[in-house]
């Protein structure tokens, strides 16, 4: 790996390097600017956002939105905890089973592998819809108000399984597997000791997506939980937002107009995104450095 980086530097062309840096820098900037506006807005007073719109820095510094979110800090911390548990457990199990399935689906000796793939893919095209799903889960399986449903319902994404399959096909050479088989290794061992290490970048990227899906999932919680101790962060924020927006319609008695509405939306994005942006760099190293098959072969 070390030699690789040196080689790249050896025949570096300055023009090309400049283009790369400029282009990547430019795209990154376009993506960053709205986020800066968002963070600035979240620290502004509601009045200044309504009056003057959004800007790159807070025109009237205020912590109202955050104070509103953290009115009951215990709830927010509990929600962080629930989200964390779901995300960690769910991603680990999902990633393991997804990649195992992906490995199975790319084994050529499996006669029915296309049929099995279609069995999975079909579920992305057709679904029974909301009502049957809800009735089945809550009335027949009695899974409402459990961690189980929060973890299981969003667990697998067929797209990710198929992407993993493509990655395994692309980065684990068939002869390697064949020779391991000749050496007497079983499929499970090949999967664990060869396929998993060689597909690290793919696992990292699919892992990020799966984790994000869990982290952002408020829908499962909305449908299947009514207990406060099981409310994940995104659902907590979503609930706060909708109650700010809508209780006003029924409110003759509340001073609803003084609640931060616009800035709340922004602050809630900051609160939910913050931890992810902090954790992301740790996963990134898998995309930053390459894989050498020789390393696994030995």
């Amino acid at each position: 790996m070390q030699s690789m980086r040196d080689n790249n530097k050896l025949n570096a062309s300055p023009v090309f390097t400049t283009i790369s840096y400029t282009l990547v820098g430019l795209i990154a900037l376009i993506c960053l600017i709205p986020f800066i506006v968002l963070v600035a807005g979240s620290f502004s007073s509601e009045t200044s956002v309504l009056r003057d719109g959004y800007w790159f820095w807070p025109r009237e510094l205020s912590l109202d939105a955050y104070q509103f979110i953290f009115r009951y800090p215990g709830d927010v911390l509990q929600a962080y905890k629930v989200s964390l548990i779901i995300t960690v457990v769910g991603t680990a199990v999902s990633l393991f089973i997804s990649s195992m399935t992906a490995y199975v689906l790319c084994r050529k000796e499996l006669k029915y592998r296309n049929g099995l793939t279609f069995f999975l893919f079909f579920t992305t095209l057709f679904s029974g819809g909301l009502a049957p799903f809800y009735i089945w889960i809550s009335k027949n399986l009695h899974m409402q108000n459990t961690y189980l449903v929060l973890i299981l319902a969003p667990m697998f994404n067929v797209m990710y399984i198929l992407i993993l399959r493509a990655f395994i096909q692309g980065s684990v050479p068939e002869p390697l597997i064949e020779s391991a088989k000749i050496d007497g290794a079983g499929d499970l061992r090949i999967f664990l000791q060869m396929v998993l290490p060689l597909t690290k970048p793919a696992l990292a990227s699919i892992g990020v997506f799966t984790a994000l899906a869990y982290w952002n999932d408020w829908w499962t919680a909305m449908m299947f939980t009514s207990k406060e101790s099981l409310v994940p962060l995104q659902y907590l924020l979503y609930k706060m937002l909708s109650s700010i927006n809508l209780t006003g319609a029924m409110a003759q008695h509340i001073q609803a107009a003084d609640q931060p509405k616009e800035t709340f939306k922004l602050a809630m994005t900051v609160i939910a995104t913050g931890p992810v942006v902090l954790v992301f760099p740790f996963v990134q190293r898998y995309f930053v450095s390459g894989i050498t098959i020789g390393a696994v072969k030995g």
């Binding site: 089973i97 199975v104 057709f126 029974g128 697998f156 999967f191």
Partner: peptide, 27 residues
């Protein structure tokens, strides 16, 4: 012949039967 591979497919098959195919009847 491929019992190990098919066995490795069982978890996902069970999952999709429970969470996708059974409720799919509601279509």
């Amino acid at each position: 012949r491929n019992r190990v591979l098919y066995a490795m497919f069982i978890p996902i098959a069970v999952y999709f039967i429970i969470f996708a195919y059974i409720p799919m009847a509601g279509i």
